[in-house]
Simulated assay, not measured.
Amino acid sequence: MEYYKNENMKLILGDCIEELKKLEEKSVNMIFADPPYKLSNDGITCQNGRMVSVNKGEWDRSSGFKNDHEFNKKWLKECDRVLKDDGTIWISGTYHIIHSIAFALMEMDYYIINEIAWYKPNAAPNMGCRCFTASHETLIWAKKSKKAKHTFNYSFIKEYNGGKQMRSMWEISTTPKREKELGRHPTQKPKELLYRCIMSCTHEGELVLDPFCGSGTTGVVAVENKRRFIGIDTEQEFLELTKRRILHQDLEVYS
Rank of each mutant, 00 (worst) to 15 (best):
V220M: 03
I97P: 00
I246H: 03
S63D: 05
E237N: 10
D42H: 14
C79Q: 07
H96N: 15
D68G: 09
S63H: 09
E107S: 09
R245D: 13
D85A: 12
L83S: 07
L76S: 00
K149R: 14
M199A: 10
K84C: 13
C197W: 01
P35R: 13
W170A: 11
C201T: 15
S168R: 07
R167H: 14
E7D: 14
V221P: 01
C197M: 15
I17W: 01
S155F: 00
H96R: 15
M9T: 11
L241K: 04
L139H: 03
K144D: 10
R245V: 13
L39T: 15
E179D: 13
C213F: 11
G231D: 04
S92E: 10
Q188C: 08
Y119E: 13
H203C: 05
R178W: 09
W141Y: 07
W170H: 12
E206W: 09
G64C: 04
N8S: 13
S255E: 13
N6E: 04
K120W: 05
K144L: 12
K147Q: 10
G57F: 11
G128Q: 07
R81I: 10
L76Y: 01
H185T: 01
P176A: 09
C131M: 11
I232F: 02
E2I: 15
Q249F: 06
V223F: 04
N225P: 00
I232W: 02
K22Q: 06
M169R: 10
Q47L: 12
N72G: 06
Y154D: 08
K66F: 11
S168D: 15
L76F: 03
H150T: 09
N48C: 03
Y154R: 14
A117D: 00
A134I: 04
N122H: 02
K5F: 04
N126K: 02
C16L: 06
M169P: 00
W75N: 03
L247H: 05
G183M: 12
V253W: 04
G128A: 02
D250Y: 10
G128R: 12
I113T: 11
L241S: 03
E240S: 15
Y95H: 12
S135A: 11
T133K: 12
N6M: 05
E179F: 10
N8W: 14
M166F: 08
T217F: 06
E2Q: 13
R227V: 04
W90G: 08
L239T: 07
E115S: 12
R81Y: 09
E159G: 05
E192K: 08
Y195D: 10
G43K: 15
Y3P: 01
N122L: 01
I116D: 08
C129E: 09
K5W: 06
T88P: 00
E78R: 00
F32V: 15
E2W: 00
H69L: 13
D60C: 11
E18V: 00
K180A: 11
A33I: 05
A104C: 13
D86Q: 07
Q165A: 14
M51F: 07
R167A: 06
K38P: 05
Y3G: 02
